[in-house]
């Protein structure tokens, strides 16, 4: 018996204002599955991310997403004056994690991306690559049911990519949706689930994982 769907689109159409951006799209991701959404610039990848995160209402169709989503946006923003650990503790408190469990969750997220030595440094002191690791660690924080990673390979060195691969492999209960442009080396991270280029040409696309 297959595990229940964590993320599901049914004839999902994405719009920005009156402009239709992509769709209709169909996709189902179950716990432990990963899927790559690919497409050229302007094909609606970021719009899809926003819709999954609940920041943008779908134009039409159905979108089922879990309550706990971890999102690593393409252009992450941080409170640069806070230390990584102080910032993460606030995020955990925002997610109503009991204080007793916060320490362990914080350590787990930092360890996944080898950020322990930067835990007490202000975020503003981190380089672009380390901030991207922090961006990914933030998405992992609090054990979300669904991880949405928008171009996660950006600014990562080989060691960072290895950390990301390991972190992805460590997931068994969460689904992962990776969004990246065509031709960018994310194919190793997840199988192609949806190609927005085809979606825009054929005006329909069905995604899913075997």
């Amino acid at each position: 018996m297959s595990s229940p769907a964590v993320l599901r689109f049914e004839k999902l159409v994405l719009s920005r204002g009156k402009k239709r951006v992509a769709g209709p799209l169909d996709l189902t991701l179950r716990a432990g599955e990963r899927g790559l959404v690919s497409g050229p610039n302007g094909s609606g990848k970021t719009t899809l991310v926003l819709a999954v995160a609940g920041l943008l209402a779908p134009g039409s169709g159905k979108l089922y997403a879990p309550a706990r989503i971890g999102l690593a946006p393409q252009e992450p923003e941080f409170p640069l004056h806070h230390s990584c650990s102080f910032y993460f503790r606030q995020l955990l408190a925002l997610g109503s994690m009991p204080a007793a469990e916060q320490g362990a969750a914080l350590q787990r997220a930092l360890e996944l991306f080898h950020l322990q030595e930067f835990a007490d440094r202000p975020i503003g002191e981190l380089s672009r690559g380390w901030r991207q690791r922090l961006n990914l660690a933030r998405a992992w924080l609090g054990e979300p049911q669904l991880l949405v990673l928008d171009e996660p390979q950006t600014a990562l060195d080989p060691d960072g990519m290895a950390s990301l691969t390991t972190a992805l492999e460590s997931l068994s209960q969460s689904a992962v949706l990776i969004v990246a442009p065509e031709g960018v080396g994310c194919c190793d991270l997840a199988p192609l689930a949806l190609n927005l280029n085809i979606a825009s040409r054929t005006n329909t696309a069905k995604g899913g994982l075997a």
Partner: peptide, 11 residues
């Protein structure tokens, strides 16, 4: 600083 996004996701 990106707080609205995190609030939307976590709370």
């Amino acid at each position: 600083e990106g707080w609205p996004l995190e609030e939307q996701l976590r709370d």
